[in-house]
């Protein structure tokens, strides 16, 4: 979900050994409305590489996504792009 080059925040989901991969896939589909294939790709990246960048977006939207992901218990943060 790239929302333009002016976007200055990354929404990142960090891996942990506790969240079930199927659950992470479901949560990503629910929060972003992605098709299953895209959610599977990101959940695999989270588990295998320890993190996945889920979105580039303005601060307010990034905060919204982080809150929604954290409601699902995922370790999501927003990071300023440097």
């Amino acid at each position: 979900m790239v929302e333009g080059f002016a976007s200055s925040f990354e929404v990142i989901c960090w891996g942990d050994p506790i969240n079930l991969r199927e659950y992470v896939t479901y949560a990503l589909q629910s929060v972003f409305g992605w098709p299953r294939s895209r959610a599977v790709q990101h959940s695999a990246q989270i588990q295998d590489q320890g993190r996945s960048i889920l979105a580039f977006c303005p601060l307010e939207r990034a905060e919204h996504y982080v809150h929604e992901l954290q409601k699902y218990g995922l370790h999501a943060t927003l990071e300023a792009r440097v």
Partner: peptide
């Protein structure tokens, strides 16, 4: 428990904590 950001400590985390507490 959960933080808002790793590289932007200036972000106000009290909002997130309040939302999670209410949740």
């Amino acid at each position: 428990y959960l933080s808002m950001s790793k590289n932007a400590p200036w972000l106000d985390r009290t909002l997130l904590e309040g939302l999670m507490r209410r949740e």
